[in-house]
């Protein structure tokens, strides 16, 4: 029977062949496919040859040259640091603190929600009172501020400045120009070049 090309060995079959653990299917294919048999034999020879390659050794002074440029860790450092590159690995103490805070926050929030669900009428009453009191205070504040402004001696003069629509347009235009000028000046100030760092690259 001629083997199907789709049955040709996979990468893993070559590994299995080397370790003597071929599956029955792969073994059957091996026995019937000349191409795979030839490739597998050559592959095994190559693998064996690769393991005989020599390991090269650096010069005898290699170790001392490396050590001359290595800064030993301070003796107080007893374990690998908890930070690697841009990633943080938190210490156990930090983890314990974070867990405690999380438990307190989540516990409080849960208790609060449960209590609110059990006393809905009371909570609604409080909310209504709070809303009405806060709106009353806001309205009172607005009235007071307006009364204060209208009672000022300069208020009458100011009203004459925008008494007509032309004057009002002029005042608005002048305000816009002043505002734009201010923004441009701020941008220029913020865009001033920062001193360069010697280590930046």
């Amino acid at each position: 029977m001629k083997p199907s090309p789709s049955d040709h060995w996979s990468f893993d079959d070559y590994d299995d062949y080397e370790s003597g653990q071929l599956s029955p299917t792969a073994r059957f294919h091996f026995e019937t496919c000349e191409r795979c048999r030839s490739a597998a034999t050559a592959d095994l020879d190559l693998r064996k040859a690769l393991t005989t390659l020599e390991t090269w050794t650096p010069a005898a002074s290699f170790e001392s040259r490396v050590m001359a440029r290595v800064a030993l860790q301070p003796a107080s450092s007893t374990e690998p640091a908890t930070r690697t590159g841009q990633r943080f690995v938190v210490s156990r103490r930090t983890l314990a603190w974070a867990a405690s805070i999380a438990i307190v926050v989540v516990g409080s929030a849960t208790a609060s929600v449960l209590w609110s669900l059990q006393h809905q009428a009371l909570v609604t009453g409080w909310a209504k009172l709070l809303m009405s009191e806060s709106s009353r205070l806001v309205w009172l504040g607005l009235q007071t501020a307006t009364a204060n402004i209208t009672e000022q001696p300069w208020y009458a003069g100011l009203r004459t400045v925008w008494g007509t629509s032309t004057r009002l347009a002029l005042v608005l235009a002048a305000s816009m120009v002043a505002y734009t000028g201010g923004v441009v000046m701020m941008r220029r100030l913020l865009a001033a070049p920062a001193p360069t760092s010697a280590n930046a690259h």
């Binding site: 170790e63 050590m67 290595v70 030993l72 860790q73 301070p74 003796a75 450092s77 007893t78 374990e79 690998p80």
Partner: peptide, 10 residues
């Protein structure tokens, strides 16, 4: 090595 022992580096 993290304790600063040179022999460990070597």
């Amino acid at each position: 090595a993290c304790q600063g022992i040179e022999a460990a580096y070597r």
